[in-house]
Design a protein around this nucleic acid. Structure first.
Lengths: 128, 128
DNA sequence: ATAAACCTTAACCTTAACTCTAAGTCAATA
DNA sequence: TATTGACTTAGAGTTAAGGTTAAGGTTTAT
């Protein structure tokens, strides 16, 4: 019935430390505990963690994620707000990706330039 | 005859502090100075800064950039190595972008889900 | 010539996101 | 029963990439 912190750690690729840290920082709440205080994560908790990782992996800060989580805790009344946050975040990430692509192009140019220089150097060079 | 740190700061959108910091960290070298010790950047320096920013903006750490810069300082013999680094970096960034897109899809699903919930809530809800 | 607006270095401060340590509890095993 | 080992907490340490402050030198405008 439920998962230990170690099991969750293995499934999420987050260390046990990080899981406790996230909890302390308010990204996870209402994690069940045994009588002796040991965390016991539910399927729902795993679901949440999935969303949190997803937001984190797209560059949302823990602080922003926390805000989102707090809204979620307030229930259905904040659905619209949460939706808005996600939509904004999506836009940001898309813009970010575009920027990255633009920078990548420059890197590509540099690669071409270096490749050319390298070939010339090898042709004209004395050491074969 | 060259640019002051402020002029470079304006052109690159890096603060004067950051320019000095980069120099101290070994990302820039051989920056000319006036007799009184004031930095005087050349066009070449600006060119370099352009590449550095490009690498930084695609997520390369200053440490890695420094390694790249050090290779450059060694001259033509490291052209191949540098080329390799850039190509690897490009691959990484492309992979990163793909990952981001995958995560974005999940976010999109969540948005759909929330939107649906919101609509249902509003239809079934008592307040209008 | 004196203040404003630059420049310099050195050193400490900040923030995010961990990461580790110390000291202790608890359950299972030898 | 003693010890191993996973769990707990509070809190300090780390890293990257800067930011800020202090204390002072230089140049230019009035």
């Amino acid at each position: 019935m439920g998962y230990t912190i170690k099991q969750v750690s293995e499934r999420t690729n987050l260390s046990a430390h990080v899981l406790r840290y996230y909890e302390k920082e308010g990204l996870l709440f209402n994690i069940n505990r045994s009588k002796s205080g040991i965390r016991c994560y539910t399927e729902d908790d795993l679901e949440w963690l999935g969303l949190i990782c997803c937001l984190k992996n797209t560059g949302m800060s823990l602080k922003q994620i926390k805000e989102f989580v707090e809204l979620s805790a307030e229930g259905r009344d904040t659905l619209k707000q949460r939706c808005h946050i996600l939509i904004e975040h999506k836009k940001n990430v898309e813009a970010q990706i575009q920027e990255m692509n633009k920078h990548l192009e420059k890197v590509s140019h540099k690669i071409d330039y270096y490749t050319k220089q390298y070939n010339e150097y090898n042709h004209g060079g004395s050491k074969q």
